[in-house]
Design a protein around this nucleic acid. Structure first.
Lengths: 136, 136
DNA sequence: ATTAAATTTGCAACACTGTTGCAATAATAA
DNA sequence: TTATTATTGCAACAGTGTTGCAAATTTAAT
């Protein structure tokens, strides 16, 4: 339940936050600021939406989905991310037809040899192609 | 040699193009529009730089590096990419201290099980952490 | 329930990133 | 050398994201 999620991450419950968080909870794909704004533009200010997304990101409720477009897309964190650390090292799939991005939380990223000297904090695999709905 | 690269990808040789392509050939890390502009702002118009980067991308000289920031970064294609297809499915590493992004052309991405029904066109692995220069 | 403190919201304004149209210029082909 | 074609620079615009500040809400404390 959305309100508990907010409290557990030390965020006050407000209308914007419950609404937007609910939006993510119901969405199967990652959402951009523009996606949210288009649904609630007469309800919430765009700056407020930006700030809401940023605080969700900071507190570990959402993670940014890496992409080769230049717009930020967000998706719910599944594991227990918090304000100190994120654990979102899973596979993301972007459909080149419908442009939707989805998380595959259960597909882990295999270990990559050859980076022994580096300190690794996170790994994100972005796969692009055609999703199930868009297949011929 | 830079001029041949341009000709092989059916691009006319101009001063902007040879200069910027040379810039990429010498750089060990991915470069953004802002990186290029700051070096050549009194020499080339910013729109021209944008258009140059886009035509390099389209013709297969550069590829976009996926990232969770919202700015586009580019790096030289190593394999024979062309205007029809890109083959840049390699590992990218972004340092969280210096923010530099580098390509690991020789580290291939392992096959990912569980996406059998999907048509896959490309795969990009973004690893974040601390690079060699920035280690304590 | 009321009040006080602290956080959040909306508005205005701004900065940065990227694109388009068009006339002038430069590169290739004839 | 000239004609054709592509490229450049300028101006103007659209989209994305941030900051400062006063007003409104939320929470905690009486």
């Amino acid at each position: 339940m959305v309100e508990n999620l907010l409290k557990n991450h030390s965020l006050r419950t407000t209308k914007v936050r419950t609404t937007i968080l609910d939006c993510f909870a119901q969405s199967k794909t990652a959402l951009s600021h523009a996606d949210i704004e288009s649904r609630f533009e007469d309800e919430f200010d765009r700056v407020t939406i930006y700030r809401t997304l940023n605080s969700f990101l900071e507190k570990g409720l959402l993670h940014k989905v890496p992409d080769d477009s230049n717009i930020a897309r967000f998706a719910l964190c599944k594991t227990d991310c918090n304000e100190h650390q994120h654990f979102d090292n899973h596979v993301h799939f972007k459909c080149e037809k419908c442009s939707k991005v989805q998380c595959f939380h259960d597909i882990a990223i295999p270990n990559i040899p050859g980076l022994n000297e580096y300190t690794i904090h996170s790994a994100n695999l972005l796969i692009q192609g055609i999703c199930l709905e868009c297949q011929d």
